[in-house]
Design a protein around this nucleic acid. Sequence first.
DNA 1: CATGAATGAGAGTTCATTCAT
DNA 2: GATGAATGAACTCTCATTCAT
Lengths: 213, 213, 213, 213
Amino acid sequence: MQPNPTFLNLPEEKKRRIEGAAADEFSDNGYRSASINAIVSKVGIAKGSIFQYFGDKKGLFLFIFGQSVEKVKAYLKEVRDATADAPLSIRLEETLKAGVDFTRKHPVIYRLYVRTLAEKEIPFRSEILTSIRRYSLEYLGSLLETARDKGELRDGVNLEAACFIIDASMDRFLQALTLPHMDGGLGIHNADEDELNRRIKALCNSLLSGVTP
Amino acid sequence: MQPNPTFLNLPEEKKRRIEGAAADEFSDNGYRSASINAIVSKVGIAKGSIFQYFGDKKGLFLFIFGQSVEKVKAYLKEVRDATADAPLSIRLEETLKAGVDFTRKHPVIYRLYVRTLAEKEIPFRSEILTSIRRYSLEYLGSLLETARDKGELRDGVNLEAACFIIDASMDRFLQALTLPHMDGGLGIHNADEDELNRRIKALCNSLLSGVTP
Amino acid sequence: MQPNPTFLNLPEEKKRRIEGAAADEFSDNGYRSASINAIVSKVGIAKGSIFQYFGDKKGLFLFIFGQSVEKVKAYLKEVRDATADAPLSIRLEETLKAGVDFTRKHPVIYRLYVRTLAEKEIPFRSEILTSIRRYSLEYLGSLLETARDKGELRDGVNLEAACFIIDASMDRFLQALTLPHMDGGLGIHNADEDELNRRIKALCNSLLSGVTP
Amino acid sequence: MQPNPTFLNLPEEKKRRIEGAAADEFSDNGYRSASINAIVSKVGIAKGSIFQYFGDKKGLFLFIFGQSVEKVKAYLKEVRDATADAPLSIRLEETLKAGVDFTRKHPVIYRLYVRTLAEKEIPFRSEILTSIRRYSLEYLGSLLETARDKGELRDGVNLEAACFIIDASMDRFLQALTLPHMDGGLGIHNADEDELNRRIKALCNSLLSGVTP
DNA sequence: CATGAATGAGAGTTCATTCAT
DNA sequence: GATGAATGAACTCTCATTCAT
């Protein structure tokens, strides 16, 4: 999980170039098909250096992935704290907005996550995914519980199912943002800022209100 | 997309063995990492034959994937027709049940779809995914429109958003079935039949009713 | 141990070129340092072909080594049968002469054996060496037992120790032939035919008679 | 052959750690497969230091090997002097015992010698081996000459051949001690102290007396 | 003087694809 | 039409050596 100190002592800019190229490569090609050749020739360093920094391909992947997860967590924590007193609808909106924002700033991170989802032989895949899902559900769970305690929810609401639906919908929303092909009916992919915000509001509204009378 | 006539004239049983092995290999390893070596040695035919039948790896993949999509469509069409007169809640339940059923009978097909979602260099990936999503939304859209016309929906419901949420939630439900790690809060993965049906009902209820008073 | 049939069906001449190059490479460099690159570029075939024929480096080595052992055994069996009725001194001389003859015809085989002796990580090294030593001792043992039964040996001779000494001395004699550096006092390495036969006779005499009165 | 003065001025303890690690590595892996990486990481010094001290891999090997040879010579000289007045049979026994003793105390040195025997590309291999053999034969030669002068030998004994046989047999005896696989008929490898001494006596007896009446 | 980061050649191995049989 | 031998590029990983600090 931890790269060699050598790597950590590298000039900030070089580090970022390596991380960037590796994240790109993994998110474009998944773990197994990602090529260390491609990474080093993009960055312009010797092949051996990568192995000096990270030991092996697995070590590189674990580091890049771990970094990404940390970034996402930090981002979400910020949103949670910043909206602590807002009503649920606003908190969901802000969460999704933050997700959109983050996905745009770090598109590779989201793709990296999707790739990890799909690939079987990724090192520690099971642990990685389980921990991500758990974190995500805890986050949404705490939002919903707070809302329930404040009386914002209907009686008898199934919190688990609600979490599941919200999680899945937001996840898909972000997928649609990253992958044009998943942008089924919502026209998210090429939307401008205003349009996107309307979409977010609409989705969150629908998530909260359901469709039946 | 179309294999060489030579392939089509093969004995039914041999064709099925080839298709099965190829589907397994692609769904286990994705497109790029799938090995034609592995496929032919599993089936017990000559490597050259695959290239005779399908031209190249790309052709093989396209054929296998296309076949899978046809199977899914046929399955869904059946459900739609069979439940034409039922209320929306039942139709959703039956759809999800059918999805579960199908995923269990043809686990490789679902995995194949997830892999395709994740991999960038898959031939015609964009077209493939777009068409799948469109089909899925059309299907759900027609269910919801029928329901609206029958007065089952609340006024002012945002059909697009509803479709999106239902699609995403069902998709995730099936993912949780296939991938233990996605089974966040719902405990789907190891559920017995009864438990699973309760989960399906709960999810569909929540999808229809929302959480707010 | 068995190469792919593909290899066995190769034209005799090509097979021999491959076997020769591989035996050379292994006997020059040992197992680990032997380079498949070097072998294929010497033979002029593609790198992949070696792996098609033998699976991996280990398979190649095992095949080459096994072949060599078979050749040696066949050679020794011939000598044993041809000298069945001769006195021990002649049989030893003929054995050593045969060894010299063989070592000259197939110098790589002897070097291969020495290399295997020295290297730790050779596949099945332990089994290989044990079986070679056992075979060698059985061979000499049967010679000595026959001699004893014919009354050619002094009473109370320690057969085990005698075997050991003869085995070691002959082994070293052949080493001296192959490796100029081991040619300590005997001047074997550059000896002409007559000289060599004298050396053989002298060694066998000394082996039989010892040094004490 | 001589390391940089920098090395010689190192604290005794550090020098010994470096020598030990290098001897281990070379004797375990041979020259070419020995890894300087492994050596430095075992000792805990910088990789560059090795090159500073010894120039290159070759220099390091030559130094380590030379050192080992010196140790052996010193050991043998001691035995020779200590047994100057004993009869030949005792001197041989003591020599072999000393060899056993030394091999046990410094197993890497013996392995190092065997490895050098086997590997072709070792620097100055030819010179190294020639000098070792010559020394060994000189040593045994002086033992035998002394014995002849004292009338311990039969008339007409071939001293050269006797030397050769004794050298080869003792060498093999030590090999059997180090490599279980060479322990052909004698059961040396797992022998306890008493048993081993009996084996040594038996071998030396047989060496001196031969097998014929 | 010691350090260890950087290098790039070379290792074994796998693979899609071609084509003579 | 079916076969599978041959190919060579690409893969991950190791290593001795150099040299700026």
